[in-house]
């Protein structure tokens, strides 16, 4: 598969935090989940890609084009949904759309009204009076009405109830049915990704810790439970996280084979993305 977006050596320094020569690429035709705890650098990365903040260094290429040189063409092919309100509350849905639409040369009014209809949005309602869920749907409708090839979303599910989250995931999968579409979205609610993501990028402290196919990651790690007596100086280092109680232990490993030999009677289970994320960002002692 070819890449749709390439980020190279992206660097941005704040007082308390910096993105440190961040490099990664997004594969065409894939949903890439961008995970990390609050403050890991997800929003800074996304805003840099979208040109909403100016990084000190780094380059961004989209489908073979340089962002610096062909920003207009590239932006026409990207749809985005941001976490914070970038809408004017006193405008109606329709008025806000009229502000945004001219920014895209490929704006499709018919597609927009289809989405509005499907979401049950009233064009004359003031944005300030929309619920969190409806505002997210409005943002999605705006992002998907100019035939974008890449949809970038920053924490689109935060503040949404489980129903609304799963509805959004269904919309994403629907969008992906068309050949060549790609999605990049950040979240700290990793259960959203268990079902839909193809690739996962884990960021922590402004650095990328993991960039891997989701299923490979889940296949290569295991959650293991068993008798605490099996934990010794040989087996302990094979775990990424380990929690011992008077009743037994539970741990996460990326060395399944070695542990299976050491403790053939232990229970091996497929981990969740959250298990893996917490293991790598050092949440070792966090209980379930």
């Amino acid at each position: 598969m070819t890449s749709i977006l390439e980020v190279n050596n992206l660097t941005k320094t704040y007082d308390q935090f910096s993105l440190d020569r961040l490099s990664f690429s997004l594969q065409k035709g894939c949903i890439t989940g961008f995970i990390g705890v609050n403050g890991a650098g997800k929003t800074t990365t996304i805003k840099s890609i979208l040109g909403l903040i100016n990084p000190e260094a780094g380059s961004i290429r989209f489908d073979g084009m340089e962002m610096n040189r062909q920003e207009k063409q590239i932006k026409n092919r990207i749809g985005f949904v941001l976490d914070e309100g970038y809408f004017y509350g006193m405008l109606t849905v329709k008025e806000m759309k009229n502000v945004i639409a001219p920014a895209y040369s490929s704006w499709d009014e018919q597609t927009f009204s289809n989405w509005i209809g499907r979401f049950g949005l009233n064009p004359n309602q003031k944005i300030a009076s929309l619920s969190t869920g409806m505002r997210m749907k409005f943002a999605v409708a705006l992002a998907l009405s100019h035939h974008a090839d890449l949809l970038i979303m920053d924490e689109p599910t935060s503040g949404l109830d489980p129903m609304m989250r799963s509805e959004l995931m269904a919309i994403l999968l629907d969008f992906m049915k068309e050949e060549g579409k790609s999605v990049f979205f950040s979240t700290h609610i990793t259960s959203d990704l268990d079902k839909v993501a193809d690739m996962l990028i884990l960021i922590d402290g402004g650095k990328i810790l993991l960039n891997e196919e989701k299923d490979t990651l889940l296949d290569n790690h295991a959650r293991i439970k068993g008798d605490s007596r099996w934990i010794n100086e040989r087996t302990r280092p094979l775990f990424l996280t380990l929690r011992e109680t008077p009743y037994g232990f539970e741990g996460l490993t990326h060395q399944k084979e070695a542990l299976r030999q050491e403790m053939p009677d232990a229970v091996f289970e497929r981990p969740t993305i959250e298990d893996i994320m917490l293991a790598y960002v050092g949440g070792a002692e966090i209980a379930h």
């Binding site: 999968l173 268990d194 193809d198 690739m199 196919e213 299923d215």
Partner: peptide, 14 residues
């Protein structure tokens, strides 16, 4: 591949 991936909740790469 996309339909199968969606139905099984696995990655399209898989």
């Amino acid at each position: 591949i996309r339909a199968l991936a969606n139905d099984l909740h696995v990655s399209v790469l898989t």
